[in-house]
């Protein structure tokens, strides 16, 4: 299942709608890394509200997305991690160390807008 990527001002929003296979995640990664420069975006929000499980592959892919997008000159925020998912991830040692996280889409947008005040 392909993940829709929406352009919202100077930011990109990728909302994951359902559980993703590993291939879908890889596809999402390459789509975001391509589009971020094409759309001249300053920030990317990945919304994982709908994901009931974030396994090690998914966590690593999110980490890779964040690092690749940083190399492409933009920031990434992960939003909408569920409480149960968050604790399960931490117990597996998947803490997404250097990626900013936010409660939901609204918070993620607020974070980016604060970081790039000239963007609006």
């Amino acid at each position: 299942m392909e993940v829709p990527i929406l352009k919202q001002g100077l930011f990109l929003i990728a909302t994951i709608q359902a559980a993703l296979s590993d291939a879908d995640l890889v596809q999402l990664r390459s789509a975001l890394v391509h589009q971020v420069v094409r759309c001249r975006s300053l920030g990317v929000i990945v919304d994982v509200t709908a994901m009931d499980v974030l396994d090690s592959f998914a966590s690593r892919t999110l980490l890779e997305i964040s690092h690749m997008i940083r190399l492409r000159g933009a920031d990434t925020v992960i939003v909408g991690i569920q409480p149960e998912v968050a604790f399960a991830m931490v117990q597996l040692g998947l803490t997404l160390e250097d990626i900013p996280t936010a409660l939901d889409l609204e918070e993620g947008l607020a974070y980016l807008q604060q970081k790039f005040p000239s963007a609006h």
């Binding site: 604790f87 997404l96 996280t101 993620g108």
Partner: peptide, 12 residues
């Protein structure tokens, strides 16, 4: 410590 990390994942 895990609680602190999990809270961060929720953006707090």
């Amino acid at each position: 410590v895990q609680t602190v990390e999990a809270s961060r994942l929720l953006g707090a």
